[in-house]
Structure formats: structure tokens, C-alpha cells
Design a protein around this nucleic acid. Structure first.
Length: 883
RNA sequence: GGGCGAUUGGCGCAGUUGGUAGCGCACUUGAACGACAUUCAAGGGGUCACAAGUUCGAGCCUUGUAUCGCCCACCA
């Protein structure tokens, strides 16, 4: 990014995020910096985006997820990899269909009115119109994905992959069709899978209903939470060893209100201690009852239909037919009560299944559906994680994944929807014979299964369907598959991650990614999940408008923890990132303003001051740490490390000291080079997290930078010859000295306009260092005269003192000093030191400590004790002189 | 019922080979200076939930307890 026309002096003093971000994203797009080359010789680094729903708008979860993926992509792009981030969207079967149906309803229509073909046409149109919206929002996040490779889970390629996978699994016997109890959502009008069902504890009732015996007096009392299913009962079951009921087994009872006769049977399934110990068996509407019914060869009786209404069938008395299941329940209970069949009603807390999408209570319903037989497929998916081909970060999610996989149940994949991949099964119009094939064998005589596949079926193929599968010979597949890392929240480990692993291994023989990086979920400031209904959502686009994208990214990143904890956010938290961006902006402005006349020569290592060496050393250490943390996915700590380095070390100390060096003709040129170098490298390290501002500022740095843009510049690494550990250590004396002197000034209310003198009592190496840093002391602590004395010299009256390392700083304050205040201040210090000393002495008295602790630590402890003793002496002496 | 996570200054949180606690916000005090008040400087504030254990030494390891949160399973 070069805009030579710009004058640094003309840049605003407040960073303008909005215009910069727009300009920079266009710059990257025009330069095609995000386009990955399948023929590159660089090693690949690939991420596929968890495809957001095509119906969706960007939420904070996307913002975090996207930012993390972008950071990893940008980092690797800068670190010698051919980096590819594949964008795309998910057709989101139920969700999208629901939106379009809602639109239709406004016109007074249902999908059935316009028919399947027309409905699909409309939905495609809708999807095409909205597809770009969500990805455009990702662009506002600064996402460096390759839009030339944008995909859609329902596009031609993905559809081809779906058919291939379905047919292959069917032919292997891993997909089957059959009648089972499934979770039916009466609102969505479709079956849903087990994991799409969420359980909520509800306060319900346990009704005890009397089923009279036929042909003799007496009755059996049955407890149920769902009396409305009673017309579908096929039997009453009791435990075979339950003495209470042993005489009743084999007898017949009558269903109250309908009068149908059913037997009493014995089955181990019954829990003697629950309820009355007798259970009504309704195979068509309860999974356990279905099993019992099957064992005893009962035909199921459907009494509730797909809309959750009582069926119009012989078993249901006419007055209940067509009633909603809850109305029916109420009426049945009333009638039971009226007719004295209802003996007792107890409050009962129980878990009720809800549709994850619409929160409608699930109706377990016996129906014909398609399933994937997961057992055989899970084996390899378990092995891949156990043997380390796939690693979860944080590791604890492996347990979660394995636990689920090891108890995996078959996956119900058919949905009674129109929007989605229609199941590639064809039935002969006359014979009903079924053919499973990628194409209709004979459209004249065969009709396709009307059901669609679960959206997650196609998402499960995403890492390879986006690379050209089923064609394994595409350039992309060969270069970029398997992908490197999958970034997502823990909420879709089962839905998505597990299925990608399963399908990836089965169809490509390779794990689709080697690392699964699981981050926490975004929550509101109270720790609650954000949801539209709660009204506690924070819109990332609004945050970007208000604080800037880089501010959003930096704040969110800094809140990520190694353990992947959930992240609580509130609007104000983004001030942190905005302020840092502004700091970055202004520090850069200052440095750039002072680079006038800078030459292109490398830093002259012979002319480096102790401070130059220190900052270069710290920069170097920062680069080392950041690279290490990147490999360990400790993204939050990267943000902290860079914040500390840039703000606390570079801005607060180095830039301040550089101001002094720039005034020195001898040092000016080299100081400029150091300033520039450190700014350059800092920007590069910050670029993955704050891409826009760094790109813009970097473009303004004069001189040769060996890249046309920061986005493709080389990410800094540790350089052996820039390590100055000795100077870094010595600089602590500088910081201590300046801070102590400032402390003295503040304690005695010395106006900032006034200068003070200081007498330094130091020997040997320390004295040498003081000599070297005198100019900084003058300027940064507002010191006029610096004089030296022997350590033993008596402390003059009317002076404040500070102890740094083993040297003493005496500040004569005749006339300025409040004696009592200074004595108090010194006594407080003394107390602190003495406490520390006593604790350390206690440790040294412990023979075992001396014997067992590392030598260095013992030495360190001793040295510290000596230092404290020396400092104590100085302070005591000082206190005396003040009295 | 099983599993996981959390508990650290007023608030939000860091703290991975166990060596004696850090950050942001808030708070107190001060602010001359051509980078920045979205700033700078100085400072106050914590028995790291509780109990026991291992160790010379525990925020960190072991065991138990309490409170909160999540996930899985699910008895009508």
C-alpha cells in the first residue's frame, strides 16, 4: 500500500476506522491477495469456513469464529504458506424453508398451493439474493477468504458429492430406510435427529388413571404424563416379579372413554417403584413403548397425527378427533375425572423434548425414515482422534467427542422438507420397487423419494465437497485437502465436527483436518447466551460502525483464553480495542513524522545505545513468543503480548527515550532506523489481529520493505543476532531510577515544571550504567544536576531518597520537604522490605529448602536478602537524618 | 444418574513443566511537553471458594466439600 501523496502531518489525530477499513479491503480485493494458488510450491494451509446459514445475519459468534480463522489464515500467509480460506454458506434446510413459507403466508399461500417445483424456484431465488449478504458482512470483519472459491452446500458440486456419498453408503448397507420412533416436530412438519432435540425440565402432572378389568370387578391403576395417548394403548405392562400385579397378568382391561380392550402383560422394562408400577404401552408414540410393543408383537396404533392433532380413526372417539394434542389432553382429563376414572393427579417434574429450531414440543412418532448406520463408521472416527491424527484444542473436548461417538446412535437423515438435497431413491410407480441411484433410472416409470436430507448431511462433506470431491484429481483437492485446522464453537461438535470426521475418513481415507480448535461461546455481560428473544444480542456490525473492525477483533481476541472459556462481552468492552487502535495510530504518526530523511541503511549495530538494544531485544522476544503462541492456538495471549510490548515498552519507554536520542546528531540516524524497524515489525505482528490499520500505516513507512503490502510481508521471527539479554537486564536500572524519581516528585508534590537535583551513590558497573543513561534521567525525571558520591557518604538532611538495585538516589529537597510525610513514606517502604526479608530468611533457615531447591533459586534468594539488608540500612539512616 | 467447566483485588478476567500473584475497567493523586485526554505519570487495593494431603515450597498436584454454569442420558 503506497500512497506517497499523503503527508503525515495531515493525518487526523484520531484514527478513522471506517474509511481506512473500506479502503484497505478494496485494496486487498483489487490486489487479489486472498486468492490461493493451487500450483504454488509453498506448503498449503487450509481452512474451510463453518458455512453460515444463508438465511443468517452476522452475529457475535460468527465475528469471533471468523476473526480467529482470519488470524490463522493471515499468519500462515505471512509465514510462507499457501494459505487458503474457503468461504461459503449453508442452505439450512428447515430454516430457509421456514422463511420462504412465511413470505408465502403473507400472500395467503402455503407451499402446497404453489407446488414443489414452484416453491423450490422461489426458495432458490431467495437464497441467491441473500447469499451474498452474510459473506459481505464477513468482509466487513476483514475476512481474508478467497471469494473466487465461494461455495454453497446446495450448489451443483455439493449436490454431486451428496449423491455420491448417499449412494455409496446405501450400497454398503450403511444407509437404510425403516419405521422407527423419531422426534417429530409438529410445527416444522418433519422428523428431526436426536441431537436436534433439546430437553427442558417442565412442571407437569402425573395422572393416575383407572383401567377397569373386563368381566370382573376391579381395575388397574396406571400412571401417565400423557393421557392423550391413551387411545393408542395396546397393553398395560407390569413387572413380571411385581407381586402386586402377578394375578392380573394376562387379564383384559378396558381403555376408559373409548372402551377398547387391551391385555395386561409382563415386561422387565417396567420400574416397579415408579408411579403405580403399571405402565400403559403406546407403541406409536413413545420410543420405549415401541420396543415393548415389538417384543410382544403388538401393532402400533397412531392416534396423533403429523400436526399434533388427534387422528380421525376408529380408536379415537369422535369427540376428540381433530383436537390439538393439548386440548385433547385437557378434555380427556376432564372426562376421566367426570367419570371417576381419574384417581389422583400429582405434580411431576419431567424433561420434555423440544425442537431445537422452533422450541415446539417434540412428538415421538413412529414413521418411516432414512437412517445412517453410525456404528461401523464411528470406529475409524474414534481411532483417528485416539491415535492423534486429529487433535482437539483444548484437549478436553476429545473426551466429549469420544464419549458421544462411542455411544453413537443411528442418524435420522430424512426430513419432510422440500428445500434440500432430495433423497436419491426412486420408486416404481406401479410395483413400488425402490432403486437408489444418482439419477432417476427411468423418469417415465420411477418417482423420486419426496424427502430431503438433513442439512448436516451436506455440511458433513464440506471439507472435501468444496475441493472438488467426488473428483479427487482436481488441483484444489490435491493441493489443499486435507485442511489444516477447523475453527468452531463446541456447540456443533456433534452436529458437524463429528460428521465431517466420519465422512472424511470414509470417503477420502484421510482425516479432513488435523486440528479442531474449539473456542468458547459469546455471552452477554451477565453470562447469558445471546438470543433475539432475550433481547440481549450485540450486533457486530454496529460495533464495527461504532468502534471499528480492528477494535472489535482486537478486543475479542484478547478475551480468548487458552482453556476456551466462554466470553462475556458488553458494548463498552470494545473501547479497549478502539483505544489500542488509536494508540497504534498516534504512535505510528509520531514515528513517521520523525522518519524524515531516514536512510535505507540497515541498523548500525555499533551505534546502538543500551536503550536501542533493549527495545530490539524485547521485540525479538515478542516475535518468539507470538510465533510460539500461534502454534499453540493461544490467541488471547498473543493479543496480550503484543499489547504489552507495543504499548508499555515501545510507546511508553522507547519512543519517549527516542525523542531524546533524535535530538542528538550522533544518534539521530540510527535511532530513526530502530524506530522504523520496530514499528515495521510490530505492525506485521499485529496484522493478523488488526489487519486494516496495520496495512494502512505500513504503507506509509518509507523505504524498502521487501513486499508490496503487509498482508504478504514476512511475519517476524526470532533473530539470534538481535538478542541483547544483558542490556535488557541492565535497563531495569533505568526504569527503576526514573520511576523512583517520579515517585519522589509525586510524593512531595513537586510541580512538574520544577526540576530537582539528584545525587547518585553507586559503584562499579552500576555507576557506569548511570553515566550512560544520564540524558534520559534528565529528561524523563525532570532532573537538573546529577552528581555522584560514594555509597558511604552520610545522607544530607532535608532530602528524599530512593534505593534502586544496590545504588542510592538522594534528592535534596531543602525547603520543599514535608519531613513527617517523608518519614512515613520511608517507614512504609521499610516495613514492606522487612516483611519480605523475614519471609525469605525463614526459607533460608529451612535446611531442606537449601538442600532441595534449585541452586539458582537459593542464590537468588540470598542475593535478594543481601539487597534488602542494604536497602534497609539506607532507609534507616535516612529516617534518622530526617528526624 | 454420568461427565465437564468455573470459583483469584469493587467488576470482568489471565496465570502449562509447583518457586510465593498479573492485566483491563473502576478508584486515589498529579499533568508542563507538537504522537495520542480514545492520553501520560505516580499510587492504593487480593488469607487465589473451603478442608485435608503430597512437597523444602501449592493459585497451580491429590482427595473431599460447597456454590454456580454447561453437556450427555432419561422412568411412564
Amino acid at each position: 500500500m503506497t500512497e506517497t501523496k499523503i503527508k503525515i502531518e495531515d493525518l487526523p489525530t484520531v484514527y478513522d476506522a471506517k474509511s481506512t477499513e473500506e479502503k484497505m479491503y478494496k485494496f486487498w480485493e483489487n490486489g487479489e491477495y486472498f486468492k490461493a494458488d493451487a500450483h504454488s510450491k509453498k506448503p498449503p494451509f487450509t481452512i474451510v469456513i463453518p458455512p453460515p446459514n444463508v438465511t443468517g445475519v452476522l452475529h457475535m459468534g460468527h465475528a469471533l469464529d471468523g476473526t480467529l480463522q482470519d488470524i490463522l489464515t493471515r499468519y500462515h500467509r505471512m509465514s510462507g504458506y499457501e494459505a487458503l480460506w474457503v468461504p461459503g454458506t449453508d442452505h439450512a434446510g428447515i430454516a430457509t424453508q421456514a422463511v420462504v413459507e412465511k413470505e408465502l403466508r403473507k400472500e395467503g399461500l402455503t407451499r402446497h398451493d404453489i407446488g414443489r417445483e414452484e416453491f423450490l424456484k422461489r426458495t432458490w431465488k431467495w437464497a441467491n439474493e441473500h447469499k451474498s449478504a452474510i459473506l459481505n458482512q464477513f468482509k466487513r470483519l476483514g475476512a481474508s477468504f478467497d471469494l473466487s472459491r465461494e461455495r454453497f452446500t446446495f450448489d451443483e458440486g455439493c449436490s454431486e458429492a451428496v449423491k455420491e456419498v448417499f449412494v455409496t453408503l446405501y450400497n454398503k448397507g450403511l444407509i437404510y430406510k425403516g419405521a422407527y420412533i423419531v422426534n417429530w416436530c409438529p410445527r416444522c412438519q418433519s422428523a428431526i435427529s436426536d441431537i436436534e432435540t433439546e430437553y427442558e425440565t417442565e412442571q407437569g402432572h402425573l395422572w393416575e388413571i383407572s383401567y377397569p378389568l373386563v368381566g370382573e370387578p376391579g381395575a388397574i391403576i396406571v400412571a401417565t404424563t400423557r393421557p392423550e395417548t391413551m387411545f393408542g394403548d395396546v397393553a398395560i405392562a407390569v413387572h413380571p416379579s411385581d407381586k402386586k400385579y402377578s394375578e392380573l397378568i394376562g387379564k383384559t382391561v378396558m381403555i376408559p372413554l373409548s372402551g377398547r380392550r387391551i391385555p395386561i402383560i409382563a415386561d422387565e422394562y417396567v420400574d416397579k417403584s415408579f408411579g403405580t408400577g403399571a405402565v400403559k404401552i403406546t407403541p406409536a408414540h413413545d420410543p420405549n413403548d415401541y420396543e415393548v410393543g415389538k417384543r410382544h408383537n403388538f401393532s402400533p396404533i397412531w392416534v396423533i397425527d403429523e400436526e399434533g392433532k388427534m387422528k380421525a380413526c376408529a380408536e379415537v372417539p369422535p369427540e376428540y378427533q381433530g383436537l390439538d394434542r393439548y386440548e385433547a389432553r385437557k378434555k380427556i382429563v376432564d372426562m376421566l375425572s367426570y367419570n371417576n376414572f381419574l384417581l389422583r393427579v400429582k405434580d411431576h417434574e419431567h424433561n420434555v423434548g423440544k425442537c431445537q429450531r422452533c422450541n415446539t414440543t417434540i412428538e415421538p412418532l413412529l414413521s418411516e425414515q432414512w437412517f445412517v448406520k453410525m456404528g461401523p463408521l464411528a470406529k475409524e472416527a474414534i481411532a483417528a482422534v485416539k491415535d492423534g491424527r486429529i487433535k482437539f484444542i483444548p484437549e478436553r473436548w476429545e473426551k466429549n467427542y469420544l464419549g458421544w461417538m462411542e455411544n453413537i446412535r443411528d442418524w435420522c437423515i430424512s426430513r419432510q422438507l422440500w428445500w434440500g438435497h432430495q433423497i436419491p431413491a426412486y420408486y416404481h410407480k406401479v410395483t413400488g420397487e425402490m432403486v437408489v441411484a444418482k439419477e432417476n433410472p427411468d423418469p417415465e416409470n420411477y418417482v423420486q423419494d419426496s424427502d430431503c436430507l438433513d442439512t448436516w448431511f451436506s455440511s458433513g462433506l464440506w471439507p472435501f465437497s468444496t475441493m472438488g470431491f467426488p473428483n479427487a484429481e482436481t488441483d484444489d483437492f490435491k493441493k489443499f485437502y486435507p485442511t489444516s485446522v477447523l475453527v468452531t464453537g463446541f456447540d456443533i461438535i456433534f452436529f458437524w465436527v463429528a460428521r465431517m470426521i466420519t465422512m472424511g475418513l470414509e470417503f477420502t481415507g484421510k482425516a479432513p483436518f488435523s486440528t479442531v480448535y474449539i473456542h468458547g461461546l459469546i455471552r452477554d455481560e451477565k453470562g447469558q447466551k445471546m438470543s433475539k428473544s432475550k433481547g440481549n444480542t450485540i450486533d457486530p456490525v454496529q460495533i464495527i460502525d461504532k468502534y471499528g473492525c480492528d477494535a472489535l477483533r482486537f478486543t475479542m481476541t484478547s478475551l480468548c483464553t487458552y482453556g476456551g472459556q466462554d466470553i462475556k462481552i458488553s458494548d463498552e468492552r470494545f473501547e479497549y480495542g478502539r483505544n489500542f487502535a488509536n494508540k497504534l495510530w498516534n504512535a505510528s504518526r509520531f514515528v513517521l513524522m520523525n522518519l524524515e530523511g531516514v536512510d535505507d541503511k540497515p541498523i548500525d549495530k555499533n551505534k546502538l545505545t543500551i536503550v536501542d538494544k533493549w527495545i530490539l531485544n524485547q521485540l525479538n522476544e515478542t516475535a518468539k513468543t507470538v510465533n510460539k503462541y500461534m502454534k499453540e492456538y493461544r490467541i488471547g495471549e498473543i493479543a496480550h503480548t503484543l499489547y504489552d510490548f507495543f504499548r508499555s515498552e515501545y510507546c511508553d519507554w522507547y519512543v519517549e527515550i527516542a525523542k531524546i536520542q533524535l535530538k542528538d546528531d550522533e544518534l539521530k540516524a540510527n535511532t530513526q532506523r530502530v524506530l522504523r524497524y520496530v514499528l515495521d515489525m510490530s505492525l506485521r505482528m499485529l496484522h493478523p489481529i488488526m489487519p486494516h490499520i496495520t496495512e494502512y500505516v505500513w504503507g506509509l513507512i518509507p523505504g524498502e520493505k521487501h513486499a508490496s503490502a503487509i498482508v504478504i510481508s514476512k511475519f517476524p521471527v526470532y533473530e539470534e543476532d538481535l538478542a541483547y539479554p544483558k542490556e535488557a537486564e541492565e535497563m531495569k536500572l533505568v526504569f527503576d531510577t526514573i520511576t523512583s524519581l517520579r515517585n519522589v516528585r509525586q510524593s512531595f508534590n513537586i510541580p512538574t515544571s520544577a526540576t530537582v537535583d539528584v545525587e547518585i551513590r553507586a559503584e562499579g558497573k552500576e555507576k557506569e550504567i548511570f553515566g550512560e543513561i544520564e540524558p534520559y534521567i534528565h529528561r524523563l525525571a525532570k532532573v537538573n544536576n546529577i552528581t555522584y558520591a560514594l555509597p558511604e557518604a552520610p545522607t544530607p538532611a532535608q532530602s528524599a531518597a530512593a534505593v534502586v538495585s544496590t545504588s542510592k538516589l538522594i534528592v535534596p529537597l531543602a525547603g520543599l520537604i514535608d519531613l513527617d510525610a517523608e518519614i512515613k513514606r520511608q517507614e512504609k517502604k521499610l516495613e514492606k522490605l522487612t516483611n519480605e526479608k523475614n519471609s525469605l530468611l525463614g526459607r533460608m533457615k529451612n535446611e531442606k529448602f537449601v538442600a532441595n531447591a534449585p541452586k539458582e533459586l537459593v542464590e537468588q534468594t540470598n542475593a535478594r536478602i543481601e539487597e534488602i539488608i542494604a536497602q534497609e540500612g539506607v532507609i534507616k539512616e535516612l529516617i534518622e537524618s530526617l528526624k
